[in-house]
Design a protein around this nucleic acid. Structure first.
Lengths: 340, 340
DNA sequence: TTGAAAGCGCTAACAC
DNA sequence: GTGTTAGCGCTTTCAA
């Protein structure tokens, strides 16, 4: 039977609603005997407490708000998966909100989440932090209400916690490694200027500049098309090459873009990695889908997510937790680069 | 200012809480003048009503429960994305619950959702319907409380609505087409015996049997490894071939599996499609990731999702809606099959 | 068109 | 160890 209230249960069990409530919430101040009596009735009638009423009293519903720009993105989808699992293991549920990429929608999505009285909001992906401080106001405002967790982005504000992968170093090392393998004209292929996007680019730039190799700004190619349109990515590189840009290596900001480079090489009849070496980012499923398989940077998503949840649980139980945690990535070498 | 109540607003606006409530809920029985007065105060203090209290009264929070086995699966992630967008456009929010694949977890996930007082639950993916009726009890029970929507699965019960792609016909046609292209030993590669999985298999079988070509049960290869392990998929085909199974075509139940076949062909030095023709399913991002690109069946996910939401909104507003809707898929020909 | 007041189902402080 | 009771913030009759 459904739609029973705590009153019905208290009546059938011959106790007060307070006692039922205590049993429900695992209070110790109930004798084993009455506890059992109450639980029996609860089970018999399959009673479940009304979440709203409970929320009204506690002002919390044990729910965490998840925001990501696009849950169909391979990388973000994976993050959602890990986070949702971990949260549930900790007794929390998740409300998902796909915010899209523009600021206004993000602000709206945040309002939705906050108005649902979530206990925290987790921003998944690096595109939630903006250059201008005023554009990050929506985060500061949210953090005034509940802790805000950032995955793959960093922002310093009260009640905001950041968990990031060291994208700068990963890219720096990947670039350096490629330079040491004898390639000096390395193209950087990217599609995001988010926090993480900038860090990656900086890693590439630094490595190139340290070797005096960044001769042309054209070596940094920004792609603005669809995330899934591998052909369009390939075409862009083809056009760049036709215009006289010479490059024998491509470092891409994600695996999709790297696949665009593979596509370009195949269409242009270039051998991989002899004529064109390629490195991707995220170490996703896509790395094993192409031939040769893609060398990629593993940024330890699962570890990041685990740490994020650990931190969040700490914060929610009132512990002092680190405001920013950095993990380092790892280059997974496959067929698109020369083995060291 | 946050954490204001309807009482604060009513006081500042000089009206009763009932009037504020009416304004909040867009009732017509408020004069334009007082409406404006109240709205001004609401805006000034950025007041938002408490969702719990509202839920307590209305017994609904305009929230739809989403369940899927694994949100990191490419296909399911896409479905989640579409559905979440469409729901929000209709003024609903979504609670996501990744249930995993075993029945017990699904039952638990369902309980979680129902106890959150969602207005409906959407089961994304075909693995929620079982052979045995008793295993579907959790759906019938849920449907006694709220409408249950099935994406890519069909089940006939009160208050359950099914939106499916005609997987049988799609597979039947893909198989027939391959037979007509001159291939008679076609292997079927699958990894799911869900509702949709069975329909696909049946489509293949029927086409093969109609041509008297299903000589060996070994032609139907079941893969039970990880969804993402392309190598393991390839190995399985390799082993099958080593054991003497001969096949010049592969029809796969999804694009991942098809990619396993591509991998197998490449390792075995087989030309695609001359020595091995391959067809995938879902027309996902993966189709353009390999060389040659993958012929695949597009099952119109976006259309399915749109229709699902339309149906749901109809149901929620009390309209009579179709219990089962079927869309047909389409074969998208690319490089892994002979062009017709 | 507006206001007063009775719930909605639960938690938690306070008594016993 | 158990019961009584006052909220929590809103919606919604019912009167006026």
């Amino acid at each position: 039977m459904t739609n029973m209230t705590i009153y019905d249960i208290s009546e059938k069990a011959g106790v007060s609603i307070a006692t039922v409530s205590r049993v429900l919430n695992g209070s110790n101040n109930v004798s084993e005997k009455t506890k059992k009596k109450v639980l029996d009735v609860i089970n018999q009638y399959e009673y479940t407490p009304n979440a709203f009423a409970r929320g009204l009293g506690l002002n919390s519903m044990n729910t965490i708000g998840l925001m990501c720009a696009d849950s169909s993105d391979l990388y973000l989808a994976k993050a959602i998966y890990y986070i949702e699992q971990l949260l549930r293991a900790n007794g929390y549920d998740s409300i998902l909100c796909c915010s899209g990429y523009d600021l206004e929608s993000k602000e709206k999505a945040m309002d939705v989440l906050i108005s649902k009285k979530v206990d925290s909001v987790i921003l998944i992906g690096s595109n939630y932090i903006y250059e201008k401080d005023e554009d990050n106001k929506y985060i500061v405002d949210a953090a005034a209400q509940v802790p805000v967790m950032l995955l793959n982005a960093a922002f310093d504000a009260p009640n905001v916690y950041s968990i990031v992968s060291d994208d700068f170093t990963s890219m720096y090392e990947a670039t350096t490694q490629m330079i040491h393998s004898g390639i000096s004209d390395i193209l950087y292929f990217y599609n995001s200027t988010s926090y993480s996007g900038k860090r990656k680019l900086a890693g590439y730039r630094t490595a190139m500049e340290e070797h005096g190799l960044l001769k042309s700004g054209n070596l940094m190619q920004f792609y603005s098309g669809s995330h899934e349109d591998i052909h369009a990515m390939g075409s862009q590189l083809e056009k760049a090459a036709e215009k006289g840009l010479s490059f024998h290596g491509v470092i891409a900001a994600d695996d999709n873009l790297a696949l665009g480079a593979v596509k370009y090489a195949q269409n242009a009849g270039l051998r991989i990695p002899e004529d064109l070496a390629i490195v991707g980012y995220n170490n996703s499923l896509l790395t094993t889908c192409c031939t040769p398989e893609l060398t990629s940077i593993d940024n330890k998503l699962e570890t990041l997510c685990q740490h994020l949840i650990t931190t969040l649980m700490g914060v929610l139980t009132g512990n002092e937790m680190p405001k920013k945690t950095i993990f380092s990535g790892e280059i997974i070498s496959r067929g698109t680069t020369f083995s060291k």
